[in-house]
């Protein structure tokens, strides 16, 4: 049986106490919320924190409030299940509900939190392996080694951003609030990410992700498509999040396209987005936009299936996501 390495466990009762403990214990400590990403990684010895600080009972991280008119606040400790079932999120931020529902399995969504999913450790099939396996191959730079085993000549780590909700929150232009003993900051979610598999987040070790703010949703439609081999369990090998708003005359007022699992961070397809804005959607335009968006996908051989395949599927999924949104609009009439 694969077991956890020893650690001390601390259970703060308030967010203030949690940030204080995190600061006091220093880099040897890690916060744990749902545990669905951290604990398997610890069993594989990808992380061996001396201290775990439990966020599970912090009320400050709970709650879903607000409205699509004003925008919504989601506590980072809310489970993926509660997000995927929330009526306002399902109706007005469907991409987020879809992405939350697409994560792993019901059991993991019942325990896993949105905060944990956003801060999911980047993944790589040279890295998400047991201690035995990584020892066998000689370790990689992300943990215990010095080189990248996917691209041995490369100075950086190419582990993949694999969170389903991350590209969606980028496409929805969400903001996140981080708190620490040093204070708090609220940033656009894009600024939470680095294009670096080793250190994929700008979150400092003493910071706790407290909440996510979604902007008003009126007039926006959104969707999320996930490529994976099976209907559950699997991480995305491509995630496509699209949000768009149309003008009364049918032209596209604004569009946001973000890709997941194609790099170490969620990638925005700026060129494709710009090409869409102000245009009447035609099949030819959508195909062009899909091709443009796909240029941002640079998969490497460190996830399921082949690089070529994952690359080839990117424009297909982008176009299908756009088709879905535009067809749905036609179906229900302009809002």
């Amino acid at each position: 049986m694969l077991r956890l390495p020893p650690f001390r466990y601390l259970a703060p009762r308030t967010l203030g106490e949690a940030t204080r403990l995190l600061a006091e214990e220093g880099p040897q400590a890690m916060p744990v919320a749902g545990g669905t990403d951290l604990l398997p990684n610890m069993k594989r010895r990808q992380f061996t924190p001396a201290v775990l600080i439990g966020l599970r009972h912090l009320r400050e991280l709970k709650g879903i409030s607000g409205s699509p008119e004003m925008g919504m606040r989601i506590g980072a400790g809310e489970t993926l299940t509660s997000i995927s079932n929330h009526p306002l999120i399902c109706a007005h931020y469907p991409a987020l509900a879809l992405a939350a529902a697409a994560v792993s399995t019901p059991q993991l969504r019942n325990a896993g939190t949105i905060g944990g999913n956003i801060l999911l450790d980047t993944r790589c099939n040279y890295y998400n392996q047991t201690e035995f396996w990584r020892h066998s191959i000689g370790y990689c730079m992300k943990r215990d080694g010095s080189i990248c085993l996917v691209a041995p000549g490369s100075p950086r780590c190419w582990a993949i951003s694999s969170a389903d909700t991350a590209p969606v929150l980028v496409a929805l232009q969400a903001r996140v609030r981080l708190v620490s003993v040093r204070g708090e900051r609220e940033i656009p979610i894009q600024e939470l990410f680095y294009d670096d598999g080793m250190r994929p987040y700008t979150r400092e070790a003493d910071e706790i992700l407290q909440e996510i703010w979604l902007p008003p949703a009126l007039g926006w439609r959104s969707t999320y498509l996930k490529l994976r081999r099976r209907g559950s369990f699997d991480f995305p090998i491509l995630g496509v999040a699209v949000a768009l708003r149309r003008e009364p005359d049918g032209r596209i007022g604004d569009a946001r396209i973000a890709l997941g699992a194609v790099a170490s961070h969620p990638v925005e397809a700026e060129e494709a987005m710009a090409r869409l804005r102000g245009q009447q959607p035609t099949p030819a335009l959508l195909q062009e936009v899909a091709t443009l968006a796909a240029k941002r996908a640079r998969p490497l051989d460190n996830a399921d299936l082949t690089i070529t395949y994952r690359k080839q599927l990117t424009p297909v999924y982008v176009r299908r996501a756009l088709d879905l949104l535009l067809e749905a609009e036609q179906g229900s009439g302009a809002e």
């Binding site: 099939n125 998400n128 099976r230 209907g231 559950s232 369990f233 699997d234 991480f235 399921d304």
Partner: peptide
């Protein structure tokens, strides 16, 4: 996880 065996949805 990585070795795929079919789920109920497949």
């Amino acid at each position: 996880l990585d070795y795929k065996i079919p789920t109920t949805l497949d």
